[in-house]
Write a protein that binds this DNA or RNA. Sequence first.
DNA 1: GCCGCCTATGGAACGACGTTCCATGCATGT
DNA 2: ACATGCATGGAACGTCGTTCCATAGGCGGC
Lengths: 225, 225
Amino acid sequence: MIKKIRTTPRREASLSRDRIVEASIELLDRNGEAGLTFRALSERLATGPGALYGHIANKDDLLIAACDAIVARTMSECAIGATPQATLRAMALGMFDTIVAHPWVGSALTRALGQLPIVRLLERTGQQVGALGVPEDEQWAAVSALLSYILGVGGQNAVNGQLARARDIDRSTFLEGLSTTWSQLDPQTYPFTRRVAGRLRSHDDRADFLAGFDFILRGIERSSS
Amino acid sequence: MIKKIRTTPRREASLSRDRIVEASIELLDRNGEAGLTFRALSERLATGPGALYGHIANKDDLLIAACDAIVARTMSECAIGATPQATLRAMALGMFDTIVAHPWVGSALTRALGQLPIVRLLERTGQQVGALGVPEDEQWAAVSALLSYILGVGGQNAVNGQLARARDIDRSTFLEGLSTTWSQLDPQTYPFTRRVAGRLRSHDDRADFLAGFDFILRGIERSSS
DNA sequence: GCCGCCTATGGAACGACGTTCCATGCATGT
DNA sequence: ACATGCATGGAACGTCGTTCCATAGGCGGC
């Protein structure tokens, strides 16, 4: 059973997986994860919802494809550093910035278990960890730790961004509210949380992310030395 | 404007937030995140969907409340170790096992940004990091890194569990499929992924998780020494 | 001990979603 | 030129979260 491929498109700019993915990214960027709808998407592409299913299995498939397009772009853009550490940090920061710019990528990534966008991250991380001199039988643990951290922070930033859009409040006002909520907790059971509540207002997510990434890198280096 | 509180319930076992949360947990454990539905929930509680909104703001609120009940239970159960490191590892492993047992907790946690269940984790982690001797102005970075890692792994395990339930396949057969997919990737662009594909079948998630956690712990100790 | 208020209740209804289905029409092979 | 088969796209289906409102039952005032 050979699957016939139509050589020429039905019309000049007919439906294609790429065109659908591209339009999906625009919708996701404009209105967040809730903005990607088969109705909105078909309207933007001047077609019906049913037509999309000829190129896409379902919504998850579409979301992961859109996510992969963004991740692939980020991977190709972020710099190769002089050392494996520098390259890893550049990749991590690139992903961080990408997720801040496209919060939906963060939540899509957490659902893409083992699929293409994750494999891209896995591969680049694995190559650099190998270049670090980590013994082969310890590489998986190191790579898995770095990836889990990136995905974890990314997921948090995703809700962060989506939440800010939903209530359309500024990020600083959200942190302000969280800070006052935390500072009103019971001093007996939540001393630490109360103590850091004040710092919440002025902290730098990006710097914190990088600091955490460096913790893991140092831990890996120390483990294999 | 004083809010009147009804002193006695309407009936013997009337609706209450606790009863709703308890029933939600049962539904979530039985059928995963898709199993929590206002219709199924109201049927189980012998009431109508509208009645629930007297005790619960919306579905997110309910999901986070259910998540918090589980997290609180885990926090109270996991052991206090002899050293701060041991306590932190016990807490991390406790959360790992909890999310394996209740995969929906993993995805609920990623959406609970700054809310009660997260605060519980934050507080315990913060206290132990303080006990580790980390200087006060470095504690936030350390705690944030540990938490992000736990949430990241948890989120991955969440989809892992939900996916296994959805396709009702064994976890090992899923890994088998992923392994063969990865081993068929292009050797030029995906050498690392191909190399670890074989190891995928036999790896131990729990051990990997603990190894990653220890990377961060070592990195923190090394940083502040 | 009775009655009117007020709130918790629960069933129906609404709008939107993902997905399926099928009549239609165009491009292709003969 | 014709028949065939597939991509198309609009309608329809079932389900979801949420809202609305008629109802009923406990509680305070008499």
